[in-house]
């Protein structure tokens, strides 16, 4: 994913995907069969690996479970419990909180980085070099990237020691680790690149003559940014947003490690259920989460037509 986006960004050749899509105007029945046949492998793959598992999850979410047996009976029990418990609402709220703060921060950083790469670096070699630099953290496992924050932020960690040495604080800051701050810091660290890549990609496709035209018409730097670059970058921002929001909403391990198990989001609720063999309950939570994420994406897509990007 990253690679294809990057390649295209660098070669600056938009529309190669569009070109690959055959125009089927005025096709006869024979051509239709050919079309169906061509689509069949993908359809089968999607049926087997996307539709079937989701159908299974939805089915199981209506089943009942005891300690060790899952009873295939149609029941709303799981959903009743889910919607009847204020823990669910608190946890969903926490999930949205993580998603929105992470989104705002990754957008600010991602947009700035992409802007710098796209408009301030003139030589293409340098652009590629700096872009690759951004991807270096992705060469390690994301668990390692996350856990390496723990000794850094700890009570006697490097961050606190340094601040104390500088005389900024007298007491170690407790909220650096095992807090919402730590969780969001890790999210931002893990997912900013998912914002940089699509935004950079769209920015590279902005026709430079538009910027010249804006300047010729007397627009200031800020006006060009707000009225020209930002609207043209929207599809990229939207793709980045979808990446970041879905990744954060589906996460459980970052929240567990960085909050020292003290905070919960929906992913942790599901993983706890699975750990305790409560599959139907986990499935019900997963279905609600899936619907929530789809609704969020649906709303996002109302704002921007990302097909322009593809």
């Amino acid at each position: 994913m990253t690679e294809t986006l990057t390649d295209r960004a660098i070669s600056g050749a938009p529309g190669d995907v569009a070109a690959a899509r055959p125009a089927r105007r005025g096709a006869g029945i024979g051509a239709n069969v050919g079309g169906w046949l061509q689509a069949a492998p993908l359809t089968l793959v999607l049926l087997a690996f996307l539709v079937a598992p989701i159908a299974m999850i939805v089915t199981v979410s209506f089943w009942r479970a005891t300690e060790f047996s899952i009873i295939p009976a149609f029941s709303f029990e799981n959903y009743e419990f889910l919607f009847g418990s204020d823990v669910t609402y608190r946890v969903f709220f926490a999930t949205f909180k993580y998603a929105s703060i992470t989104w705002a921060v990754t957008l600010a950083i991602g947009f700035t980085v992409a802007y710098f790469l796209a408009f301030h670096i003139r030589s293409q070699t340098m652009q590629i070099a700096l872009f690759l630099l951004c991807t270096i953290p992705f060469w390690t496992s994301n668990i390692i990237r996350m856990i390496s924050w723990i000794p850094f932020l700890g009570r006697n960690g490097i961050a606190n020691q340094t601040l104390i040495d500088w005389g900024v604080i007298d007491q170690p800051l407790e909220w650096l680790l095992y807090s919402d701050f730590a969780v969001i810091l890790a999210f931002v660290h893990l997912y900013t690149l998912f914002m940089v890549v699509p935004v950079f990609n769209t920015m590279m496709r902005i026709d430079k003559s538009l910027l010249e035209a804006a300047r010729d018409n007397g627009a200031s730097g800020l006006q060009t940014l707000v009225h020209v670059i930002l609207p043209l970058t929207k599809p990229g921002i939207m793709i980045g947003t979808i990446f970041v929001v879905t990744l954060v909403m589906g996460d459980f391990i970052t929240v567990r490690f960085m909050s020292g198990s003290q905070k919960a989001n929906v992913g942790r609720l599901i993983s706890n259920d699975i750990g305790l063999l409560q599959y139907p309950s986990a499935a019900a939570t997963a279905v609600v989460l899936l619907c929530t994420v789809l609704i969020v994406i649906g709303i996002l897509l109302r704002f921007v037509n990302i097909r322009k990007e593809l």
Partner: peptide, 25 residues
């Protein structure tokens, strides 16, 4: 107690408990 900030973290694996203790958290 949790809401009053009594706990630094909860642990789930052996290694986590070792790290919490040895780092002085």
């Amino acid at each position: 107690a949790k809401q009053n900030g009594q706990f630094r973290a909860f642990w789930k694996t052996f290694d986590e408990s070792v790290n919490l203790m040895s780092s002085g958290e």
